[in-house]
């Protein structure tokens, strides 16, 4: 069994974000990191492999040359290699365009299971996993908080607001995971050193059978008109309780009455 882990390079949530003139995120202006939710997918893939149920795990990333830093980070967890789609034509891709690129990149690749995060911290559309599955013509088991890999099938506990559904599907399939699925390990020093030498295949759009206007801003099905920083929220009033809870409780109750919420 061969597992593919799509990984995204995202700005660090804690870093200041800058917007470039073309309404895209200036990704060089904000500390890029490996999307946190993808780390849980990588950890889960490693566990499947360590249980002897997978032979190989490859990362897959659509991103510019600088994203190789992120790909190496992914490899340092112990993955076997990576595929990168790097092409100026990818810039400005929306969720369907991203899914088309990722699906295109898998055109000639053997794979049985795609394990990915349920959301990216920047775009946060939560659409890419199901869209990727649609382009690949396979089932998607999303929001998994538990994964079980069987013989030719996968079963997940899919998180719902009130509990979970246990869902099973034959492979090949896409599985997206939520944070509750595991506790990711830290890359070992050995892993970090080995990551530098792992195979990384870089493809461009032509190489995966897509034209520049199939994806990127030209091929996106949505357009951003403008982006504006939100005026920062002002701190409101602050009340210090007297230690008994009475002053604090009174302040909140009065506030709720003023807000017509009580």
């Amino acid at each position: 069994m061969r597992i593919i882990c799509p990984v995204k390079r995202v700005p660090d949530t804690a870093a200041e974000k800058k917007i470039a003139a073309d309404n895209t995120l200036d990704r060089d202006g904000s500390e890029p990191v490996l999307n946190a939710n993808d780390e849980w997918a990588i950890e889960e893939a490693m566990r499947v492999k360590e249980a002897g149920k997978a032979d190989e795990i490859f990362a897959l990333c659509m991103g510019p040359e600088q994203a190789q830093q992120t790909i190496r980070k992914a490899l340092s967890y112990g993955l076997d290699g990576a595929i990168q789609v790097s092409d100026e034509g990818c810039a400005g891709s929306d969720a369907p365009a991203t899914a088309r690129v990722l699906a295109g990149a898998l055109g000639d690749e053997p794979w049985d299971l795609i394990l990915m995060g349920n959301q990216s911290s920047d775009a946060r559309t939560m659409l890419v996993p199901a869209m990727l599955a649609e382009y690949l013509g396979v089932p998607a088991l999303t929001y998994a908080k538990r994964l079980e890999v069987g013989d030719g099938e996968v079963t997940v506990d899919r998180e719902t607001p009130t509990g979970h559904q246990t869902v099973t599907a034959p492979t090949p399939a896409v599985v997206s995971v939520v944070e509750a699925i595991n506790e990711p390990r830290y890359p070992s020093f050995k892993g970090i050193m080995a990551a530098k030498k792992k195979p990384l295949a870089v493809k461009d759009l032509a190489g995966i059978g897509l034209a520049a206007d199939d994806v990127g801003s030209a091929g996106a099905w949505t357009q951003t008109l403008d982006i504006a920083p939100k005026p920062p929220r002002e701190a409101g009033e602050q009340v210090t309780d007297d230690g008994s809870g009475a002053v604090g409780a009174e302040a909140i109750a009065e506030f709720l009455v003023r807000q017509k919420m009580l």
């Binding site: 409101g236 602050q238 009340v239």
Partner: peptide, 16 residues
Amino acid sequence: ADLGVVGDLKQVIPAL
């Protein structure tokens, strides 16, 4: 926060 209460939640919440 529009309203911040500096206090021990173990006291403030039951009172609230």
